[in-house]
Amino acid sequence: MMLDDFLVRAALGGTGVALAAAPLGCFVVWRRMAYFGDATAHAAILGVALSLVLSTSLFAGVLAVSLLMALAVSLLSGRGYAMDTLLGVTAHAALAFGLVAVSFVSGVRIDLMGYLVGDILAVSRQDLAIIWGGALMVLGLLSWRWPALLTSTLNPDLAHAAGINPKREQLVLTLSLALVVAVAIKVVGVLLIAALLIIPAATARPFSRTPERMAMAAAAIGVLSANGGLVAAYRFDTPTGPTIVCIATLLFLCTSLAGACRVRSRPARSER
């Protein structure tokens, strides 16, 4: 059967993750939450350690810890420390504690690199089910809440006046972020998840006129990077996760250069 081929499974896994990560990544970019995504992703390694100790499923452990981390940061923000300081502390603390905790797990052979940079070629059928289940859930959440999310991203008071609670929408994003981290850990690893969120969105920005087009273009770019990266990694025998991020970055360079040229060749329209 087709799914027996590890390359096909890898392509499907990468596509699923990219489809969910890219539109969510747009919100991460618009709301300037890049570091927030990093902190949530880095906490995942602690989730890996916990799920090994408690011998629960990796997905559940990572999801729980990422969610707790994201909620904790949301609650702590605006209480004494600037957001970037707070995230700088928590992101690296979570990674460090996670790595230390993993070293305590004895008797289990752990491929630490696999969790740090991912191991997409080892995606199993069960992983595929989890990845696509999680990705569809994130896409469902985002499209269900889309107008409310967009309004609260623009301005919280504007949302209030329209009867939308921006705190609840923030929670939707937090939950989606934890879900994406949990399904992406196998594909690109904790160090590179944030790249999969942000780079496709940033790549889509120069040629998008509306938020919806930017989200769709980001999804397409994410899928292209994932599959292109897979092919390139196979051909040049390079690590897959980092290769995917390299391809995405090349696409980013192309569109931002094209965008800069377009702005220069076409003078800004006059005000009136």
């Binding site: 970019v29 618009w30 107008p147 623009l154 949302a159 939308i164 940033a202 509306t210 938020p211 930017m214």
Partner: peptide, 14 residues
């Protein structure tokens, strides 16, 4: 980073 035409802005949230 958020592209937004006037028409799209008018259609938020409904």
């Amino acid at each position: 980073t958020l592209p937004m035409t006037v028409a799209r802005f008018m259609a938020l949230p409904q």
